[in-house]
Design a protein around this nucleic acid. Sequence first.
DNA 1: ACCTGAACACCGTTCAAGT
DNA 2: ACCTGAACACCGTTCAAGT
Lengths: 195, 195
Amino acid sequence: MSPDHNSTRHDRDGVARAALALLDEVGLADLSMRRIASRLDVQPSALYWHFSSKQELLAELADRITSTIPSDAADVLTTARSIRDALFTYRDGAELVLSTYALQLGSSHAQAALERSLRRQGSADAEERAVALLHFVLGHATLVQQRMHADSHGALPAGEAVDVTSGLDRIFDLGVTGLAAGTVDDGISERQLRS
Amino acid sequence: MSPDHNSTRHDRDGVARAALALLDEVGLADLSMRRIASRLDVQPSALYWHFSSKQELLAELADRITSTIPSDAADVLTTARSIRDALFTYRDGAELVLSTYALQLGSSHAQAALERSLRRQGSADAEERAVALLHFVLGHATLVQQRMHADSHGALPAGEAVDVTSGLDRIFDLGVTGLAAGTVDDGISERQLRS
DNA sequence: ACCTGAACACCGTTCAAGT
DNA sequence: ACCTGAACACCGTTCAAGT
């Protein structure tokens, strides 16, 4: 029996872990305080001892999702991919981080990682490019993840279908390398794009 | 007295117009079917004669927001700006279009406009670049709009503040020109960026 | 330190019935 | 063609009170 849904008492970490697991099962739209409470065998009001609002809980989940992004700078494409993959780790992870991100000012973990990679590659305007890159990655990942979910539920109009996510990796790489341009070694990104 | 909130009967267009006006007043989070109904002096259930679900109503609003985007191709930067400005016309317009967009497959109005502009500029991979550009514009506009709203309500931690949206225009232009690269005349976009 | 119980002010949606 | 009235199964949040 998992310790997550018996009648022991909980701390902030336990609540966050249960909420993150539930997010992956039901998605952001169905992640209610009442459902999280029910998963923990607790009344909904109990959650408000650990978090002052649902928004604060969601911000904590967004922090946990992005916390796995490596801080040591690899090249820009690798960094961008690791951000995207972190967002993909949990269902609706991209949408959650996107809608939470605006409340932090400037320096998120992901943005800082991108900025370091850009500087290492000798990019001009590294800070502004990092912001643009982050906006692209968040927008792209959110759209792709929504589409994945819509596909799996047959909610899309029938058609060519099949490889809906097929060209998306290429679009992602094309976008990242375009936004990372203005660096010393453009040639590398161009070469990687053809792999 | 406006014809929008008396007791006359309504059609699909009238409901959509009222909902769009209400969106601009209260924002997406507070745009409920019950509020829209109340604005129209009608029971909530009445809305379901015109739209089969809230999701369908929101999709209609997203279509109306993006319908003002010019179809005739200007240069890529101008097209991208007109998409962004259409999203900015209504409160939370970017978020609404972003969350609605995944359900359409491929060819949205905005994407088609970007693709035409790219082809006209002689871009390689015009279709894929158009998708990447659209993802950037939607991500960027959503983040900026959220920040604008958070700022106006003092929901952000105090700090440097003042010109929060100041550098964002530059980031937008930098992102668009980067993603439009690979065209015949790169020089033009570089020159525009310095203006 | 952590939780219950009850309440408040909301949601989206369905459906028979009215005009 | 368009709407009412009532109901169903939900929401987030607050707060006194319990242990």
